[in-house]
C-alpha cells in the first residue's frame, strides 16, 4: 500500500463576512484512523471540501500524498471520499450509481460488485437508491469511496443515521482499513462514535485546530492525578490524605476525589492510617470529557458572538 498522508496547511476560507477556516493545519497519517472532531460549524466539512478541491481556499493548501487533489492522476484511486450520503439520484440503482463512478475511474464493473459485497449492500444493489434508508446510503457512500481501492479515505460523518449494528460494523471496518496501512480521516460531531476507533484525533473549533494528539495522550491529560475512593470513614481519610499533600473533595456521602497523589500512594497512606476503604480507583476521563473541555471555550465564544451579531449566517 502506497502511503498517502492528507496534509492541511494554514487553510483560510471566508464566506462573505463569515470566517469558516481560520488557519487550519493538521496531518492525517497513514496506518491509523484519525478522528476529525468538532462541534457543528467548526469547519470540518469545509476543510474536507477544500482537501477534495471542491472549494477554493482563500489561503493555505491541502495535499493528498504530496499533491493537491485536483492535480492527482486518477483521483479516485488516490483518495476515496464520502461527503454526503444523500448525494445519489433517487431513481438510479445503487449499482448504477457506483457504475458511473467506476467508468470515470476506468474501473471494471466487477469492482463495483466487489465493493457492494464489502459494505454488505449486494442484495439491495439493483433497487432504486431513493428507497434506501440513511444507513444504507452511508454504506453506498462508503462503497463509492472504496471503489478505487485508494490508500487514503476521507469520510464526513459516516456514522450518521446508522443503526447500532451498522455503527459496530463501521468501527471495525475503519480499523481494518487503517490496519491495511491506509490513511483514514473520519469526521464526527459526536465523541462516542469515535471512541475506540480513532487512535488519533484532531479537535477543531471556529475553523482552527484546538488539539492534535493521540487519543491515549488526550485522555491521560484530562484524567490528571485523580483517584476516586469510597470509604465509610470520610473524615479520617481526608485528614490522612491532606496531611500528605493531597487535595480532597467530597463526591457524594461516602466518596472522595483525591488530586495530587498517585493511586499507589493513596492506598499506602490509607492503609497506614488504618482507614477502611471500600473501593479505590484512579479516575479515567473519557474522550468525551477531553472533547467537551476543549470545545467549551470555543462554543461559549461562538455563543457570545452570535448574540453580538444576530444577523450573521453560520455554516
Amino acid at each position: 500500500m502506497q502511503q498517502t498522508a492528507i496534509t492541511v496547511t494554514g487553510l483560510r476560507k471566508r464566506y462573505g463576512s463569515v470566517v469558516a477556516l481560520d488557519g487550519m493545519s493538521f496531518r492525517a497519517q497513514p496506518g491509523r484512523v484519525t478522528g476529525f472532531l468538532g462541534p457543528n460549524g467548526a469547519g470540518k466539512s469545509t476543510t474536507m471540501r477544500v482537501i477534495l478541491g471542491l472549494d477554493h481556499p482563500n489561503a493555505g493548501e491541502a495535499t493528498v500524498g504530496d499533491r493537491p487533489y485536483r492535480s492527482l492522476p486518477d483521483p479516485l484511486r488516490r483518495l476515496g471520499a464520502l461527503l454526503d450520503a444523500g448525494a445519489v439520484h433517487p431513481a438510479r440503482s445503487g449499482r448504477n450509481h457506483l457504475l458511473w463512478l467506476a467508468r470515470c475511474a476506468g474501473l471494471p464493473a466487477s469492482r463495483v460488485d466487489a465493493v457492494l459485497d464489502l459494505v454488505g449492500l449486494r442484495s439491495a444493489a439493483r433497487r432504486r437508491a431513493g428507497g434506501y434508508s440513511l444507513g444504507m446510503r452511508q454504506r453506498l457512500g462508503i462503497a463509492a469511496a472504496l471503489l478505487g481501492d485508494p490508500p487514503a479515505l476521507l469520510l464526513d460523518e459516516p456514522f450518521n443515521g446508522m443503526d447500532p449494528e451498522g455503527i459496530v460494523w463501521l468501527r471495525g471496518f475503519l480499523r481494518s482499513l487503517a490496519g491495511q496501512g491506509r490513511t483514514v480521516l473520519v469526521s464526527s460531531h459526536l465523541m462516542g462514535e469515535l471512541e475506540g476507533t480513532a487512535e488519533h484525533v484532531v479537535v477543531v473549533g471556529r475553523g482552527r485546530v484546538l488539539a492534535d494528539a493521540p487519543v491515549a495522550e488526550l485522555i491521560a491529560a484530562e484524567s490528571g492525578d485523580r483517584v476516586v475512593l469510597r470509604t465509610p470513614a470520610v473524615d479520617r481519610a481526608t485528614a490522612a490524605l491532606t496531611g500528605a499533600g493531597g487535595a480532597v473533595a467530597a463526591f457524594g456521602p461516602d466518596a472522595l476525589v483525591v488530586t495530587g497523589l498517585a493511586a499507589e500512594r493513596v492506598s499506602a497512606l490509607l492503609a497506614a492510617a488504618a482507614v477502611p476503604v471500600g473501593q479505590l480507583a484512579p479516575h479515567r476521563a473519557t474522550l468525551e470529557d477531553a472533547y467537551l473541555r476543549l470545545t467549551r471555550e470555543a462554543t461559549q465564544y461562538r455563543g457570545a458572538d452570535a448574540t453580538a451579531r444576530p444577523g450573521e449566517v453560520r455554516r
Binding site: L52, Y69, R70, L72, P75, L76, A81, A87, L101, C104
Partner: peptide
C-alpha cells in the same frame, strides 16, 4: 461533487 471528485 462526486462527479467533480471523479473528474477534477
Amino acid at each position: 461533487r462526486l462527479t467533480l471528485l471523479a473528474s477534477p
